[in-house]
Nucleic acid binder design. Structure first.
Length: 372
DNA sequence: TAGGCGTGGGC
DNA sequence: TGCCCAAGCCT
């Protein structure tokens, strides 16, 4: 494997980034940076948490909503956790929202509202791990930290034709990135690597002909870029089955309860559901309902999670007057702002309970991926 | 360390 | 259509 000259690599990449970088709501462009504008650590942190395992297109609307409602980390820290979860609803991986709020409180209360400025210190905060600490330190505080996300893994395994499967290859990747990261503009270097991975060095059909660092790339020489990174095969996802119960009051209010604070959809709201059995033979139907009512079947919904696929029988009851003590009645005009994850919005839709989906308000742009 | 943890879009 | 993937973290 040829050794890459860091100085030449940095020059080629940064030159490309200055010309072809993406404009993103949380990003300070190189031009603005040169004119003296500094990134806001709060906005960098918020964007990085939202972007964990989540596409830029999905994040944009949520980022705008959050920063409009909570302009500073202190504002976010002062909000009730339930409000944060409700604003996060639809974005997924809800532990991120719980950790986001916990982190905001820590920064506000013990760091006097200022984020720590080193990767090592940032990494001690909830929800901030190896990647995110390095990214914030580099982008917001100019620390030449090795920023390695999925994009960078893809770029680097192709550059060096690393055939070791992930995650075993991670130490080698990190070491290589550390050797390439410059002391000057380390944040732009990191963002350039990620933009390159997102727009040129894509998982399928990479645009090697447009790549600013193809001269340094081993994989492209033999047209093998698409072979990297090597990943282990994923196991088949099991099926689970359960029932959901949508109770309606005469005034149209729907009965909701709060899920346990940790675990699957932790802290989020739902119409009552049975346990989700892996066997598919659990007690479903009215027997599993949280209280007596005139339960009527209205069909099934399906939803794919990361590690299992769920089918929920949906039951509906009208003219219910008393729910149970572990929940609340949500009026029609309030349902949209409840902390309902997407799977539970599907349940309400199947039960014909009107509620704008969270993604309709924000309007996630669909557009095709763009090539610079 | 490997598995839990969401969602929507692209192909 | 079903699978893969997206700026990972936590336990």
């Amino acid at each position: 494997m040829p050794t890459i000259n860091p100085t030449a690599f940095q020059a080629a990449l940064i030159t490309w980034y200055d010309r072809h970088h993406r404009e993103l709501p949380w990003r300070v462009s190189p031009r603005a940076r040169a004119a003296g504008q500094k990134p806001d650590p709060y906005r960098i942190w918020l964007s990085e948490i939202m972007l964990q395992q989540t596409t830029v297109a999905a994040v944009k609307a949520y980022f705008e909503k959050f920063t409009a409602r909570w302009p500073s980390v202190g504002d976010l820290a002062a909000a009730p956790e339930g409000d944060v979860l409700a604003q996060w609803a639809g974005l997924g991986y809800y532990a991120r929202a719980r950790n986001l709020h916990a982190c905001a409180k820590t920064v506000s209360e013990t760091h006097d509202g200022a984020f720590p400025e080193t990767a090592a210190a940032l990494k001690t905060l909830p929800g901030i791990g190896e990647y995110t600490s390095a990214a914030i330190a580099a982008i917001a505080f100019d620390e030449p930290a090795a920023v390695v996300d999925g994009n960078v893994e893809r770029v680097v395994t192709r550059l060096a034709a690393i055939g070791t499967p992930l995650p075993k290859a991670k130490p080698q990747i990190r070491s290589l990135v550390a050797g390439l990261t410059p002391d000057r503009r380390p944040g732009d270097f990191a963002q350039a690597m990620m933009d390159l991975g997102a727009t040129i060095c894509t998982p399928t059909r990479p645009a090697c002909v447009l790549c600013p660092v193809r001269a340094f790339c081993t994989a492209t020489k033999t047209a093998e870029a698409e072979r990297f990174p090597v990943k282990p095969k994923k196991a088949a996802v099991p099926e689970r089955r359960g029932a959901a119960f949508v109770a309606l009051r005469p005034d149209g209010a729907v009965f909701l309860r709060k899920r346990p604070g940790t675990g699957m959809l932790g802290g989020m709201s739902e119409p009552p559901t049975s346990d989700w059995s892996a066997r598919g033979d659990g007690a479903l139907g009215p027997d599993a309902a949280p209280f007596e009512a005139n339960w009527q079947p209205v069909g099934e919904i399906e939803h794919g999670f990361t590690h299992f696929r769920l089918t929920l029988e949906v039951w509906r009851a009208e003219n219910v007057r008393d729910g149970s003590s572990d929940g609340w009645w949500s009026r029609p005009e309030d349902v949209a702002s409840e902390a309902l994850p997407t799977v539970m919005r599907k349940v309400l839709k199947a039960a014909k309970v009107a509620h704008p989906p969270p993604r309709e308000a924000g309007g996630v742009a669909k557009g095709r991926k763009t090539r610079p």
